[in-house]
Amino acid sequence: MKKIGSAFAYYLGVTMCNIKMALLTIVEYPSNILGWVISNPIQFLLGFATIKFVVEQFGGINGWSYGQLAFLYGISVLSHAFSMIFFVQGWFMGFFVIEGEFDRFLTRPLSVLYQFFFTNINVFGFTDLIPGILVFLYGCAKTGFSFTASNMVGIMALLIGATLIRGGIYILLGTTSFWTKSANDFGQFVQEIFDKTTMYPLSMYPEAMQLILTFLIPIGWVSFYPVSELMGIETAFSAGGMGVWITLGVGIVTMIAAGLVFRIGLRRYESAGN
């Protein structure tokens, strides 16, 4: 038990160092971060404009009012932001495999997956939080969502679970590079699919697609099911009042599965020079 405790303290210390380094890079290249501060929020304006200007004129979409959609959208962007901060490296795993970048990590006395994600904490991801928080608060105001203690805990569990689901899927996709031996640059596709399936109600897609996104690829749990429940909207699969906790559970399971697949993949890692 003591050993686990000291290992945890060690990892925590390293993480603190990494966060410090990440913050220092902002000070080093202020103009660089300024570009992302401008460009990342713009990306989410499009989706918000769709909800604000288009859906509002039609009154709603599939039983979702436009305030509820803003809430859903906010949750989606927030979980996207957190996944960008901690797990964006997954998008580039292919390049690490091809370039033999894992050599460096393998020689150090830390978990390879931990190093892969936390050596470069993506400070630019924080710029995604800005539109996320704004739209989320807007949705809360429009729907009269109250910040009671249980709601706050629920939102936290939801965001942690959603972030883990996204991160787990990035890792699983990135890990395919160990087998294909090519750098699959899938980032933008994944982003596009996640955007369209988590920012709008999943119920607008055909049933087969909903089934896949509920049970096979757990994207539905990132935002649609838990938020439906918080907003009191009926869905095809009732979560029985446990939506946010199921999301957290699905997130943890996805991440563990991703970690296992990564370990299997790493055995096939051949280093550079082939």
């Binding site: 103009s31 570009g35 992302w36 460009s39 990342n40 713009i42 304006l45 499009l46 769709t50 288009v54």
Partner: peptide, 21 residues
């Protein structure tokens, strides 16, 4: 660094040109 600017341009055109809405 142009990366952020490229992204900004892409999203601005998407939003303002009527390509999606």
């Amino acid at each position: 660094s142009m990366d952020a600017l490229f992204q900004a341009k892409k999203h601005l055109i998407r939003l303002l040109s009527g390509s999606i809405i």
